[in-house]
């Protein structure tokens, strides 16, 4: 009977669902989830990074039967999770520097290999600053050597820990402390700069690259799980809204992440050995305005006179993503992560 019914009350968009079989439930739905990043951490209310980190690390811990070590770059995640004398981490965890998480992880992986403990897997993680900017050299080196490390970037699109300064992951038109909408930055962060580390990672032709979002837990978990089934260098870039830095309601963290996907501004896809192999289709497309309006970092676009051209430019970026990653084409990723 269970097998003939394909349709569930709520499908798999929710975290769990009592109607699903255990195998179909998310790691996060389990009473036995590890809570790798435990309560008592000092992240802001509604922190997307705290959420994304627990999602990802819990999934990785389940995939490795808890045989996992994490190396963390300096940044919000590190600071809010490990202020002396309190740590929130439930797994062996090492913080060295801002720009070297990938290399430190390489060292840990090398140690595990030389010690005959290759079943202990290694995760490196950092924010967008620690990944796309200062840690980029070490990251590229780790990719190029194809070291057995899964690197996860929690992208909240600016240097939040230091007070919301622009990073190379900051979207155009966003207001940050170093791209205030005045003078030469009249419309916030300039267009045409920044970089896509997922695409750069693909250029290294590493075994696995994926983007994910806190708004799609199943997809995220499927990708982390898949990544942990592969050896070699792997990269997952997770979109994690920052209520503080984006000037958003802490309750809107997941909603914003969802709108970023549904507008096309944050394409969710995966690639193997440099080739795109799957994407998460947009379920109900929304204009970028729906996403932008909820954030004070874009408020200058909506003050009179409304910056119609800038908004159109952002919409064009979303439209380009939609074309480039075929986001309106129904396609279920091989990971099975992309729902509906």
């Amino acid at each position: 009977m269970e097998t003939t019914i394909k349709f569930y009350q709520t499908d798999t968009f929710t975290v769990g669902n009592r109607l699903l079989s255990e195998a179909e439930r998310s790691v996060q739905a389990g009473m036995q989830r590890t809570n790798a990043l435990n309560s008592g951490h000092r992240a802001c209310q509604g922190c997307g990074e705290a959420l994304g980190a627990r999602f990802a690390v819990d999934a990785a811990m389940r995939a490795t039967n808890n045989q996992l070590v994490a190396c963390n770059a300096t940044g919000c995640l590190e600071v809010f999770s490990t202020p002396y004398p309190e740590s929130s981490w439930q797994l062996p965890w090492l913080h060295s520097l801002f720009g070297n998480a990938a290399a430190v992880a390489t060292g840990v992986a090398a140690a595990m290999k030389v010690k005959g403990k290759q079943h202990i897997r290694v995760l490196a993680q950092g924010g967008d600053g620690g990944t796309t900017d200062i840690g980029f050299g070490c990251l590229s080196g780790m990719f190029e050597r194809n070291d057995d490390v899964l690197y996860i970037c929690y992208d909240n699109e600016a240097y939040m820990n230091t007070g919301v300064q622009r990073s190379s992951a900051t979207p155009p038109a966003a207001r940050t402390a170093t791209t205030m909408p005045v003078g030469q930055h009249a419309n916030g962060n300039v267009f045409g700069k920044g970089k896509s580390v997922p695409l750069i990672a693909m250029a290294h032709e590493i075994p696995y690259v994926a983007t994910a979002s806190v708004a799609d837990l199943r997809d995220l978990e499927a990708k982390v799980t898949k990544a942990m089934s592969i050896h070699g260098a792997r990269y997952i870039h997770i979109h994690v809204p920052c209520p503080l830095g984006w000037g958003a309601d802490p309750a809107h963290t997941i909603k914003l992440a969802r709108l970023a996907i549904e507008s096309g501004l944050f394409p969710v896809f995966e690639a193997e050995h440099g080739e795109i192999t799957g994407h998460r289709a947009i379920r109900a497309q929304v204009p970028v305005e729906d996403y932008l309006k909820l954030q004070k970092r874009f408020a200058h676009l909506f003050r009179a006179p409304k910056q119609v051209d800038v908004i159109a430019h952002l919409q064009a970026m979303a439209d380009r993503n939609i074309r480039r990653f075929k986001l309106l084409e129904k396609f279920t990723s091989p990971t099975g992560g992309a729902a509906a």
């Binding site: 190396c71 520097l97 070297n100 430190v104 060292g107 840990v108 090398a110 140690a111 050299g137 080196g141």
Partner: peptide, 13 residues
């Protein structure tokens, strides 16, 4: 920088 960083990771492990 990576050399020392890799050594840090290895030593910590």
């Amino acid at each position: 920088f990576a050399a020392m960083s890799v050594a840090i990771g290895a030593s910590a492990a």
